[in-house]
Design a protein around this nucleic acid. Structure first.
Lengths: 206, 206
DNA sequence: ATATCGTCAAACCGACCGGTACCATCTCTG
DNA sequence: CAGAGATGGTACCGGTCGGTTTGACGATAT
């Protein structure tokens, strides 16, 4: 959820501004509750420019969620490799999430929220963009598993059931995110519980 | 997610049919993707009847989600008290969820999904119904914590940190639900991971 | 038989939806 | 300077949204 450091803020590039405005509005209010007119206005762009850069609203949604997934994972990887390898590095992920959850505009995992918003379309394979969104969601979770599996492999001794343990940690992360989104006032408590559970599971690995 | 046994199926009561139709459509496609016309048609009722029974669409949504929360918790309590008290009864919750996740129309937790669908409205306290929805979501999670705390108290010896442990189990449950909703093909695996994590946390309680 | 109640279909309302056409403007490149 | 391309403003398209109105129909109870 952090603003990526390396990206240019407003180089007057229309597509960039539209993507940023859409990401913010979609995250705050949901894909279905935000119209293209409002996105264009918030981006300081015209609707024509929006449709010159994106085939459709669904296409814009797909682009936004893909970028969001990239940013989340880039942020997690960048933020965790400071910590010493091993258990500390895994628990650092939870500390990073704690920062995010405490931010004012926190509304849960943008990727999974978008999956919920577009749940109807992404099933029966109607639109290309809808399927693209579903693919991004799948990939988002898989990248979580990849990251967790890598970090688990750094343990000494490495766990024999790294895949299974990684999935448990993923469930803890997404569970804490979902509960925290529904109860922002208890976000810190839910994340602390998840972090402690992660530590206990790692310590008791087989 | 089961059909409640004790309720009359179709006693020609209009309000009942509207609630059932709305619940099904909302769950399958999301609150924002279903219009009142479609709900009335699916219920075999007229739009006038819908608006005689509910003040607004938001009011209907609030009624649907409240009923859903009741049904879920009634189902979990009824299904778990068959199992012997102790660890088995807690793990029985995960087995019940496993059945649910395997059903064809599974789309995640209806209550949390609705919270995501209505995330914009339920914040700034605009509509009464929107706040009612937020309250139902809060209560839904609290009932989870109450149930888990009760079941944990039955352990021998009871855990000293039952509240904290209950929150960990809640995170596992909702995490597994969220991940399973995004990846129905891996729903069973995610839930198995959550169940094993729950067992480990309970076994290692302080 | 009359009155009441809930129901129905259909037309209708203003607002907004996603998406497009048209044209004036601006800014880069040559 | 000239031309090309991207941009923005505005009006517009058909369709759907949540919600209301009207008037008739069929019960049920007095």
């Amino acid at each position: 959820m952090p603003v990526a450091a390396g990206e240019t803020l407003d180089p007057r590039r229309t597509r960039r501004r539209i993507l940023d405005a859409a990401a913010e509005l979609f995250y705050a209010r949901g894909v279905n509750a935000v119209g293209v007119n409002e996105i264009a206005a918030a981006a300081g762009a015209s609707k024509v420019s929006l449709y010159r850069n994106f085939e459709s609203k669904d296409d814009l949604v797909a682009a936004v969620v893909a970028e969001r997934s990239d940013r989340v994972h880039g942020w997690l990887r960048a933020g965790s490799d400071d910590a010493p390898a091993g258990t500390a590095r895994i628990l650092k992920l939870f500390d990073l999430l704690a920062e995010w959850f405490a931010e004012p505009g926190f509304r849960g995992c943008a990727v999974l929220n978008t999956a919920v918003d577009t749940r109807a379309a992404s099933r029966s394979g109607e639109r290309d963009a809808a399927r693209e969104i579903a693919t991004t969601v799948h990939r988002h979770l898989e990248r979580y598993l990849e990251l967790l599996t890598e970090l688990l492999a750094e343990l000494e001794p490495p766990p024999t059931d790294a895949d299974f343990l990684a999935r448990q940690l993923l469930v803890l992360i997404e569970g804490a995110t979902a509960v925290a989104a529904a109860r922002p006032d208890e976000a810190t408590r839910s994340l602390a519980a998840a972090r402690a559970a992660a530590a206990a599971l790692i310590a008791g690995r087989s």
